[in-house]
Design a protein around this nucleic acid. Structure first.
Lengths: 337, 337
DNA sequence: AAATCGCATCGAAGCGCTTCGACAACCTAT
DNA sequence: ATAGGTTGTCGAAGCGCTTCGATGCGATTT
């Protein structure tokens, strides 16, 4: 393994000079710089990460904590994770993958050992047990998701409240008066996951404002659960003409059921989904949808974390504005018979 | 930040003693050990990762290289990644997440900088460009997936050849004579991804042995592509009574189409899927399937890598035996009219 | 011509840990 | 009682890098 000292010797300069060439923290004559760079190339030198971390007390690593349970929103998580890894590299950072398994201990371990310079937490719950630790260790961090108390924290998330409002608006504008929301699994609401509640909030308040009737029903994924849920909705509100789905694994079952019951989309029923674009486009009907901007969230999280690490940037809540893409699944409400 | 020296002072011993308590590499009297452990707890000491890495030239980090493109098999990748992270922790290792983006350079960088002690590569192609580097840097590594030349490499994968054979057997045993395979997107075959070809190989040779007719058609995911593919299959082989699907995003569209065309599963058509159990169980019909044992693959990969890192373990190819779980989607072939 | 400045470079002191050799203190066996 | 072995602990030497202060040296100012 090639060391700094060997590069220095090869280039006929001192070790510190090589270091300064690498970091650019002091000016180096063009001549010397080139000689050093040439030696680095010829010897195939790579700075030793451990030594660097020790001497500079910076690891150039960002920890990413993903939820352990893989039952929810998996492709989105993956997309965020990859976006984080990619943007981190662009800033010269590597990403350490932590699972939720260790829980709060992971925060302590990473902060205490200097393994990472900062961390990004995904799937933050309203009252997350990792937050107190985060605050007291003053470990630079960014949350993806919104806890109840955001004071002293930097958070990135889709503006789910606006997302809910946007969905209702879109349907109301087309004359739909009875709208049903097919939501996440009941467990998601019981866990008080922020995004689900905020979406609901946006849905409700906007429909109140627009004078539209709104029915919300949680739904487990899968065909059977969807069948039950849909039946109940149509039983309770037979005039329902607009459906809003916020549950990836309910989308395809829903479409299959509607097809089976002879309800045409969008002629009889309009459907708006809150899901990744890929799901909306690959469904059996091109779905009008509000995308979950996974990439953007990952990128924002990294940008803000890096800003903090460099001393710029401050605590703030970044809500990404939702965008609704109209595809084939929504149209004017059918005239009441 | 608490250091070893501070712990030593607090416990009234030398730094090296504390180090030996931590590593267990020399015997320490019970008395001393307890005093040191108490000091560690009281001061909240965490060893500094960088210093440790520098002194021991081991980082206790495993690099995991996931494919950049997220278009394929995403939940499986995620599950593997999480299994890797979890089992790595159980062995005292952390996981560094690398995306395929950097390509072979990532191998060089990680190996050269001592950032990680070893690496796990996912989504290995038959003739992967990272392999030559891996061989020449003698970086301990484990591949998930099988390249064309496995010499000098340790690989973990599902035995896709046996998987293909198993699917055919299951259908043939129930009297199906005409079987169609709905495969991955054409691009997957063009890229010569090993698993797709090996599955096909197993499917073909076993159906030859059993005297069963087999038709293979690649298929993009989604409803429309599936519709076209299915139509072609039934046009070419109207007697097809068994379908084998190896494409997650074709599963639900296929079921929807069959339902729509009035073909009952399994009375008219039997369907076997090669997919994660979750997909098979959440589909609109409980699917007979061969699972992709993501967790097991991740765990195996880590176990073998750790064995290598500890000097045990050698180069070998580990093929995980497939298991077919019969659910509701397969039954006896309908009698020919 | 002397004093001042900025630039390019060097040497040395650590960063916090592991690990090796040394050395007391204590046990056995002779 | 003495040589030899254990066992438990310590001191010191690095691991490869960053960074601070010092230094030499031309260029600029007075």
């Amino acid at each position: 393994m090639v060391t700094l000292a060997e590069v220095a010797q090869h280039a006929g300069v001192s070790a510190s000079t090589v270091s300064y060439v690498l970091s650019g923290k002091r000016s180096i004559s063009a001549n010397t710089r080139q000689r050093v760079e040439r030696s680095i190339r010829e010897l195939g030198y790579h700075p030793n990460a451990g030594a660097r971390a020790l001497a500079s007390s910076k690891s150039n690593i960002i920890a990413l904590m993903v939820p352990l349970r893989t039952d929810m929103y998996v492709p989105v998580m993956m997309e965020i994770a990859i976006a984080v890894a990619t943007s981190a590299r662009a800033h010269g950072y590597d990403v350490l993958l932590l699972t939720g398994e260790e829980g709060p201990d992971a925060v302590r371990r990473v902060a205490g050992s200097g393994l990472a310079d900062g961390m990004i937490l995904m799937d933050v719950e309203l009252d997350d047990e990792r937050l107190p630790l985060l605050r007291e260790t003053d470990q630079p961090s960014v949350l993806i998701g919104l806890p109840a108390d955001t004071s002293g924290l930097t958070c990135v998330d889709l503006d789910f409240r606006a997302t809910g409002a946007l969905c209702v608006e879109h349907l109301a504008k087309q004359g739909h008066q009875d709208i049903a929301v097919i939501g996440e699994a009941p467990a998601v609401y019981e866990r008080h996951t922020g995004f689900a509640e905020r979406t609901l909030d946006g849905l409700r308040s906007r429909s109140r404002e627009l004078g539209v009737r709104l029915l919300h029903r949680p739904c487990e994924g899968g065909y059977d659960a969807m069948a039950v849920t849909l039946a109940r909705i149509l039983d309770e509100r037979p005039d329902t003409s607009g459906l809003i789905v916020q549950n990836e694994s309910a989308v395809e079952p829903l479409l299959a059921l509607l097809r089976q019951q002879g309800r045409a989309v969008p002629e009889d029923v309009s459907v708006v989904a809150i899901c990744p674009d890929q799901v909306a486009m690959q469904a059996s009907v091109r779905l009008t949808s509000v995308a979950i901007p996974a990439q953007e969230m990952g990128r924002h999280a990294v940008d803000h974390l890096v800003a903090k690490l460099e001393g710029r940037g401050s605590d703030q809540v970044v809500l990404i504005a939702p965008e609704l893409t109209a595809r084939g699944s929504t149209g004017p409400a059918p005239s009441r018979s």
